[in-house]
Design a protein around this nucleic acid. Structure first.
Length: 568
RNA sequence: CGGGGCGUAGCGCAGCCUGGUAGCGCGCCUGCUUUGGGAGCAGGAUGUCGGAGGUUCAAAUCCUCUCGCCCCGACCA
């Protein structure tokens, strides 16, 4: 393409509304424009990147035998009612009515639709397995769109669905997808981890997410460098360091100490000059089975999602309820001397503690769990940096990350309500076993930018760059320069390279700046002085290293360099 | 949905407190010069000051309401 004919509206300054690096650079380099909150226009450069990404996805999906199709974005209420999600999902779903007042929604995902299809068409075990996918727009009425294309209300997603006879088949397809995803993200030049994740609204058994580390990420993942344990903080386990023995710990006998007006862990810790590791945080919560206490160590935070998995939905008790149930106001409640059900974090299992005394302005010192109270023990704390890996014990680290893909074992969660059944070899009706697998191509692009940029702009990996090479004739007023540049353009096209030539009547500085901003991996610089010596320059965008080559060798050299970048 | 911030030319911003002819830089258009890291000179175009209502002789500025966007949190494939 000729730069002068292509729509690449670069900006000198970053628009004020952008904060995330990828957002700033996509705006400045002329890749996207924002229409409204969470709605983006993908300009030609961005669309070329998206195309390259989706091509990689198509290739890899093809390799695992997945078949591309296209499902409607407009979907009738009835299918969503089959699974109950019409009511479960709430405000995140865009809903509308047609002229006949029938309820419809804009699809936020397509499990219902493919399962409906499968229920209509799949009859026999001979029809299975099937793997279907599409690359299509999804709609979600996000409470807070943010960070450019990272969280939008309308976005393109590759979603695939596997249909198997049994768990073994699902396992195979799950693994195939996992492997394909590894290849896709690697080919796109991303650093990423596969982590254990919470299935959330998708339901089903277990799931994994693919996470690209980046400060712009919304998720936090826990990683163990030693054994490879990797999990979303939503469910990451950890082993907090044990309480160190207090020099005078042995002398702590159980006694109530006066702690006037000291309610929070920090207040009590400061007042008694004791580390928060020796304090029990007691929270009175109400589940559908009634009130119970959740106990975590003073240095830990209660992980509500983990707790919810144990006791189901719960809420915190009101001030008055605490008084009614325990006879004391919040801040002085403790796990001893009452018969409430208790769920305690594993960090509390050993050691000696201080907790509320269940009487106002007093705390009890010298409490020993299991001696002074009974509890169910679970991991209900939020994992923290530096704590022990649940598998191997070595230190875990926490990182922010962008979710670029996910894979879910759905099992029969969708096939049962849809009666998506098949007849097995013995003629028995059996529900199809399903999996679902998503990738966000725009998130891949944004994550790559987040991970690969410098002060001058984007640094695309060759695999998903909008072009392979940008030719920069430094002065198109000079006929020798512009003609040489055009000759290179044609020669490189003949070699099947995707080339952008900056044929604008701009000064060299402007072209250099724009080229670095846009981030095409190779630059071919055609300038007057070098040309007189029969020389042009080739520059790597990533390192800015310049190679001078003879004009007649430049095409060959560029091909070599491209091949080199491809194999990196 | 809770908390905070911001809406003035295409972009970045000043002006608002203390009401009185709407500004600056960049970009854009024309011409000349210039051509290896966002050129110089000369000339020029561009605004419902987010919107509505109110106060006032007079509102970008003060008041009320409203819409939009961004950030933090809640929520979230």
């Amino acid at each position: 393409m000729h730069f002068s004919e292509m729509f690449i509206p670069t900006l000198r300054e970053s628009p004020a509304e952008a904060e995330a690096v990828s957002h700033i650079l996509m705006l400045r380099a002329g890749y996207v424009r924002q229409l409204a909150a969470g709605l983006y226009i993908y300009l030609p450069l961005a669309w070329k990147v998206m195309e390259r990404i989706t091509n990689i996805i198509r290739e890899e999906m093809g390799k695992i035998g997945a078949q591309e199709m296209c499902l409607p974005a407009l979907q009738p209420r009835e299918v969503w009612q089959k699974t109950g999600r019409w009511d479960d999902i709430g405000e995140e779903m865009f809903r509308l009515q047609d002229r006949g007042s029938s309820d419809l929604c804009l699809g936020m995902t397509h499990e219902e639709i493919v399962t409906w299809l499968a229920s209509m068409e799949i009859r026999s075990y001979r029809d299975l397995p099937q793997v279907w996918y599409q690359i299509q727009t999804k709609f979600r009425d996000e409470a807070r769109p943010k960070s450019g294309v990272l969280r939008t209300r309308e976005f393109i997603m590759k979603d695939s669905y596997s249909f198997d006879r049994d768990e073994r088949g699902l396992e195979e397809n799950y693994q195939k997808h996992s492997d394909a995803y590894h290849r896709i993200f690697s080919r796109c030049g991303l650093a990423f981890y596969r982590v254990e994740s919470d299935p959330g609204m998708m339901g089903g058994a277990t799931a994994h997410e693919f996470m690209a580390p980046s400060p712009a990420g919304e998720d936090v993942i826990a990683l163990c460098k030693k054994c490879g344990y990797a999990a979303n903080i939503e469910l990451a386990e950890s082993v907090p360091a044990p309480q160190p023995p207090l020099s005078d710990a042995e002398t702590w006998t159980r006694e109530d100490v006066s702690t006037p007006e000291k309610r929070t862990v920090d207040e009590v810790s400061g007042f008694l000059h004791v580390s928060t590791l020796y304090i029990i945080k007691s929270l009175l919560l109400i589940s559908k089975d009634g009130p119970f206490l959740a106990l975590v160590r003073g240095d830990q935070e209660l992980h509500e999602k983990k707790l919810m998995k144990i006791v189901g939905d719960f809420r915190t008790a009101e001030k008055d309820e605490v008084k009614d149930i325990l006879g004391v106001e919040p801040g002085f409640i403790g796990p001893h001397d009452n018969e409430l059900k208790k769920i305690a974090d594993i960090s509390l299992k050993e050691g000696i503690y201080i907790s509320g005394a269940n009487k106002k302005d007093f705390h009890t010192k010298g409490l020993r769990p299991s001696l002074h109270f009974k509890a169910e023990w679970h991991d209900i704390h939020v994992a923290q940096e530096g704590e022990g890996c649940p598998r191997c014990g070595s230190e875990i680290t926490l990182q922010k990350a962008i979710e670029i893909g996910n894979i879910f074992r759905l099992g029969t969660k969708y096939s049962v309500p849809f009666k998506a059944l098949y007849l097995d070899k013995k003629g028995k009706e059996v529900p199809i076993v399903m999996g679902s697998y998503g990738i966000g191509p725009a998130r891949i692009a944004a994550a790559v930018i987040e991970q690969s940029n410098d002060k001058d702009g984007i640094i695309w990996p060759l695999s998903i760059a909008p072009f392979d090479v940008e030719i920069i004739p430094l002065n198109i007023g000079d006929r020798t320069i512009s003609q040489t540049a055009e000759q290179f353009y044609n020669a490189l096209k003949k070699e099947n390279m995707d080339v952008l030539i900056d044929d604008r009547d701009e000064r060299p500085g402007v072209k250099f700046k724009d080229a670095d901003l846009i981030g095409i991996p190779l630059q071919l610089i055609v300038g007057g002085k070098n040309l007189k010596d029969g020389i042009v320059e080739i520059k790597y965008r990533s390192t800015k290293a310049i190679t001078k080559v003879l004009i007649q060798e430049a095409v060959k050299k560029l091909k070599e360099m491209k091949n080199q970048l491809e194999s990196d």
